[in-house]
Design a protein around this nucleic acid. Structure first.
Length: 805
RNA sequence: GCGGGUGUGGCGGAAUUGGCAGACGCGCUAGACUUAGGAUCUAGUAUCUUCGGAUGUGGGGGUUCGACUCCCUUCACCCGCACCA
């Protein structure tokens, strides 16, 4: 008979719930530990086996930290706005709110059945008006500080969804959800000025304990580059344009200029002779999707505009071309082309037979672009200088002449913050009939999303809210002026930018959260979630946090001190789990058949937390087998009492393995090496089976160490061991360093670096002693026969290596 | 193409600073118990072998008394970015 997981798990889940075992005391005297999971979007399909991986990791840490005397904040909530609920509403006519509530209920049940130690009194939901009141409040603050603005930008307009999509929601030119075609269309949009924080977002990465790869991704995303802006006059026009370059030192080698097809000057400067060619080219580019533009990138295209720019350093005339290898969205949308020292310009110049002038020596510009460093040539006052010197001298020259300046640009762009959707936080802004615009007064927050009978696209590009005349139209009670509410809502990212703050003080009606509480609990000690949020969510959340820091709402510059990305759980065939492949494992089934403890244990034992490992039914069975073995070691199966082997006294045979286990498990869990920590628990159980007697103190220590991983089983065993209340706040075991080392240790004897023999010797034997004993060893002597000893290497406590030939 | 990472038994994976490669689990083999075993317990399990040993951490080379670990080179796979001036 093995243990009855269904009964035990239910019993302890009820116990924890009734006793509010995991309730966090906000102003506890204890040291704090804040363990955060990336809260899920409660989709209609329910929990995936991938979810519990990260959740179990943080739960293990939380449970261990509680036992180590910390006050632990370990909350859960719902990122519940989002397109699927809206799509569902449009398709079925049902309410997104009801649909979402139902999904949350399912998620909550599933998560509770896994035995995570969340403080459910802190549960938050981004769609709750009491929550999004503060999301709206933050928006108003951003607006007041000039960080939210309206701009007309080309957006991804999806006629089928009747909405605008963010770049990250467009995959290969079609919408991520639904796969509908997407076209580009200019539209008035709310933007957040994240670029104002670019430098700080970049610099402060240094101090974060995050995976290096992830920090690198953020650095690349921000894409800072230093250079200069240079202004070019246009020959025969009273206009000038500005280019950005990282190599102002090569200005003497600039032989032509290129404008992006979307550049406003293109149409102004084009000559009559070239007009038709340019128009055709622009039309061709417009009809290409982004994908096609990338695909065709291998072969550069472009057209001469007929206009010439004047190179400010030498007054040479440079033809201005239009080409789609220059992007409107980066820099100024215009470049000076230096074909001798830029690979793209070189390729273009070669194709269109434009001149190539070498200005940096060191390469062979007749065969390829030279991008390395070297002495400058053909460059007047820069001749003889190297790259760094030439760059600063040129910048100084440009600034002096007023035709350029030092400039930093970023790949990062401002954040498109408006969505033409119903199911999102309403943006608290009113547009008045006199053309002015105000935010909704703070005391009127939350601006509640109105319930609507029918949710359908307005057809105009506005959100379905535009259909709700009653809600949209407002009259100022004081002046009688008419106004119209903003119909755009916020993107899903908004609510997840600050949810970890609200957990700290979820019911506060006066403030986003009590500053004293924030002071105690920030920053977050560990944040675990999927790598898919490596850039966007984590960058946006850092941006908002820094803003809140600036307006003195939060006390820290960064929200997440330590972050870790869990890997993916793949299907048995080593492919991503998906409905279409039919290889999806449902956590409910596993909880039913094997139990939550087994699922938790298995997911932690599969491999390192950051690795992507295939699901294995055999492996799952193995995890259950281990828990059964633990049960049988401790419980007498005949009558359910404690096993007779468990004694009150000592068993010195188990001293070493027990103390080793305490040490390894403690350190491994702390470092998120759950697979190796669990393997050590297995080693202890194997030794326990071999032993004649099991000191009760060791068994209690073992059950405590098992409890973060398999909490239900551990509580049950703890009760069998004679305790009457939860194991949650029992003291985490300590180890005795002196028990780890034995007096006599095994030393390896090598000849020429190969192990030939082993001896047992006192652990503190001296070098001389070791050498002597080694050379006297019979087996070793056999190997040394007929050889001359050249050298003996002794590593005390480890090995003796004899070099002989 | 650029940036980051990973390559270890039949499989998932272990291995402080260079010091016994393969912990632990899965699978497999044998034995015990058993009416039975797809339960449980015990033992074994990298490869080759003339049973002395020899070889072995993607491939090739190097440093070292000694390399999974350090260096060079090469191949494969994964992730991110994709003309970023």
């Amino acid at each position: 008979m093995s243990f009855n997981h269904q009964q035990i798990e239910k019993k302890w889940q009820s116990y924890w719930e009734e006793n509010k075992t995991f309730k966090t005391n906000t102003f506890s005297e204890k040291e704090k530990f804040y363990a955060l999971d990336m809260f899920p979007y409660p989709s209609g399909v329910g929990l995936h086996v991938g979810h519990p991986e990260g959740y179990t990791a943080t739960d293990i840490l939380s449970r261990m930290k509680r036992m180590q005397g910390y006050e632990v904040m370990h909350p859960m909530g719902w990122d519940a706005f989002g397109l699927p609920a809206e799509q569902y509403a449009i398709d079925t006519g049902n309410s997104p709110a009801e649909f979402t509530a139902k999904n949350i209920a399912t998620f909550k049940r599933q998560i509770k059945e896994l035995g995570f130690s969340y403080d459910w009194d802190r549960e938050i939901n981004t769609t709750d008006p009491n929550y999004y009141k503060w999301t709206q409040w933050i928006f108003i603050k951003l607006y007041e500080k000039g960080l939210a603005y309206i701009d007309e930008v080309p957006v991804n307009w999806c006629p089928a969804l009747g909405t605008v999509l963010a770049n990250e929601e467009v995959i290969d030119g079609v919408s991520e959800r639904g796969g509908h075609p997407v076209i580009r269309k200019p539209m008035k949009q709310w933007m957040l000025k994240i670029t104002a924080y670019a430098d700080r977002l970049l610099e402060d990465l240094e101090e974060l304990d995050w995976p290096e790869s992830l920090k690198e991704m953020q650095r690349n995303w921000i894409g800072r580059s230093e250079g200069a802006e240079v202004t070019f006059k246009i020959d025969g026009h009273n206009e000038e344009f500005t280019v950005f370059t990282t190599r102002p030192d090569t200005l003497f080698g600039a032989t032509y200029a290129v404008l992006a097809p979307e550049h406003p000057f293109v149409k102004k400067i084009v000559s009559d002779a070239q007009k038709e060619a340019v128009d055709n080219y622009l039309h061709e580019v417009e009809t290409k999707s982004d994908l096609e533009r990338t695909d065709l990138a291998k072969d550069k295209t472009g057209v001469f505009t007929g206009a010439y720019a004047i190179n400010p350093v030498n007054n040479e005339k440079m033809p201005i071309w239009v080409a789609d290898y220059v992007l409107m969205s980066y820099g100024t949308g215009a470049i000076m082309a230096v074909p001798a020292h830029d690979e793209r310009d070189y390729e273009f110049a070669t194709k269109f037979e434009l001149p190539i002038i070498e200005v940096v020596a060191g390469g062979d510009v007749t065969t390829e672009a030279y991008t390395g460093d070297g002495k400058h040539v053909n460059s007047d006052f820069l001749n003889g200088l190297d790259k760094t010197e030439a760059i600063s001298k040129m910048i100084a020259w440009l600034e002096e002449k007023g035709v350029g300046e030092k400039k930093v640009t970023y790949r990062l762009r401002d954040w498109l913050f408006a969505r033409q959707r119903y199911w999102g936080e309403p943006i608290p802004v009113i547009h008045w009939e006199d053309g002015s615009m105000t935010t909704v007064p703070e005391e009127e927050l939350p601006l509640v999303l109105p319930e609507m009978k029918e949710i359908k696209p307005s057809g105009t590009g506005e959100s379905p809210l535009a259909n709700n005349i009653e809600w949209v139209n407002v009259v100022d009670p004081k002046t009688g002026m008419k106004g119209r509410r903003e119909t755009n809502t916020m993107p899903q990212w908004a609510g997840s930018c600050w949810y970890f703050l609200r957990y700290i003080d979820p019911d506060n009606t006066e403030k986003l959260a009590d500053p004293e509480a924030l002071e105690k609990w920030l920053p977050i000690d560990i944040y675990i979630g999927g790598a898919e949020h490596a850039v966007l969510h984590l960058l946006y959340a850092r941006f908002w946090h820094k803003f809140l820091y600036d307006i003195e709402v939060v006390p820290t510059k960064e929200p997440f001190t330590k972050l870790f990305n869990q890997g993916m759980i793949l299907g048995e065939g080593n492919e991503k789990m998906s409905k279409s492949k039919g290889n999806v494992v449902n956590p409910d089934d596993i909880v039913f058949s094997h139990g939550a403890d087994t699922l938790r244990l298995y997911e932690m034992f599969m491999g390192p937390l950051d690795a992507s490992v295939a699901w294995s039914t055999n492996g799952l069975d193995g995890a259950r087998r281990f828990l059964d073995r633990v049960w049988r070691l401790i419980v007498n199966e005949e009558d359910g009492t404690l096993a007779a082997k468990i004694i009150d006294g000592d068993n010195s045979d188990l001293d070493k393995v027990y103390h080793e286990t305490v040490k390894k498990v403690t350190e491994d869990f702390e470092n998120l090496h759950f697979n190796t920590g669990i393997s050590q628990l297995m080693v202890f159980v194997n030794e326990g089976y071999k032993a004649d007697s099991l000191p009760k103190a060791f068994i209690e220590g073992f059950v405590k160490m098992l409890s973060p991983v398999a909490p239900h089983l551990a509580e049950e065993l703890w009760e069998k061991l004679g305790h009457t209340s939860t194991i949650t706040y029992e003291t985490w075991p300590a180890y005795d360093e002196s028990k780890l080392v034995e007096d006599e240790i095994e030393v390896v004897l090598q000849v020429m670096g190969k192990v030939r023999s082993k001896i047992n010797i006192a652990k503190d034997a001296s070098k001389e002693e070791l050498e002597k004993v080694a050379l006297e060893d019979e087996t070793l002597q056999k190997w040394l026969e007929g050889k001359t000893i050249r050298k003996v290497i002794v590593v005390p406590g480890k090995l003796v290596n004899v070099v002989a030939n």
